[in-house]
Nucleic acid binder design. Structure first.
Length: 257
DNA sequence: ATGACTCGCAACGCGAGA
């Protein structure tokens, strides 16, 4: 069994205690982090290395940043999403671990929709589609985990009306998410769980967590080779209830060996 | 209810997040 977890930690330094406590209990084979909010040199790699993880962090100061941690060697890394040499935002890291191609994705938020952030988001999704579609991953399992900042369907949010017009729920964003699925990728959580009420993010404001006013925006998209081995995909709500919690909670994918 | 949280920052209020 191989477990791969994804978690937008909203600053790895502010969250280090919570993250390590969860890692020590959950013991994921691969951990994909987003919004580490620090440069790679400042990533607390020693804390993970002493727990047996190899670390690959791609960061920048203050914003964004992704990391890929694994109990097995990290091979053939890609540290930026191809397709725009001008894009300096740290939002993508990809590598091979134990014969599985894995990526940690922090897809742009895109709000406000009237700003240039929304076309940047859509273009980023086009680049991701071109990257995945243009490379030959078919000979090995591919797992794209991360914060996609997309609410795929109305059942993926507590109150669809409240999200109407938001970049996370705009028809364009959802269409481009479907375009990724149309490459042959499966939304692993949705393949195993039907219905409303499955969320991965609750806003810090308005008591969203206490009222369970959440949205499902952290996803695993996996190719056929990985879907053949899909056993479980679960949202662990535990960390969201903690003091000093991230506004996102981990999602854990389990593949058969 | 023009609000509300929480983060990082050569901070001491602001931009960004979602």
């Amino acid at each position: 069994m191989t477990t791969i977890a994804t978690w937008n930690v909203n600053s790895v330094k502010a969250r280090l205690g919570n993250v390590l406590e969860w890692v020590d209990a959950a013991l994921p084979d691969v951990l994909l982090l987003q919004e580490i909010k620090c440069e790679a040199e400042a990533f607390p790699r020693l804390e993970f290395e002493t727990r047996g993880y190899a670390c690959l962090a791609v960061g920048q100061k203050s914003y964004n940043g992704v990391a890929l941690l694994a109990r097995a060697p990290i091979e053939d890394p890609v540290t930026a999403l191809p397709g725009d040499a001008e894009d300096g935002q740290a939002r993508y890291v990809e590598a091979t671990v134990g014969g599985i191609r894995v990526a940690s994705i922090y897809l742009p938020n895109g709000n406000p929709v009237e700003s240039d952030k929304f076309p940047y988001k859509l273009a980023w999704m086009d680049r991701l589609r071109a990257h995945v579609g243009g490379r030959r991953f078919d000979d090995m399992p591919l797992v794209l985990g991360g914060d996609y900042n997309v609410i795929p369907e109305a059942i993926d949010c507590y109150d669809p009306a409240a999200w109407e017009g938001d970049a996370l729920f705009r028809p364009e964003s959802r269409a481009k998410f479907r375009a990724l699925e149309n490459l042959g990728l499966t939304d692993a959580f949705r393949a195993l769980h039907a219905g409303k009420g499955h969320y991965t993010f609750w806003d810090y404001q308005r008591g969203a967590w206490q009222h369970d006013h959440g949205i499902r925006i952290d996803h695993f998209l996996i190719n056929g080779r990985a879907a053949d081995r899909l056993r479980e995909c679960e949202i662990d709500r535990g960390p969201r209830a903690r003091e000093k919690a991230s506004d996102h909670t981990p999602v854990v994918l389990t593949l058969e060996d």
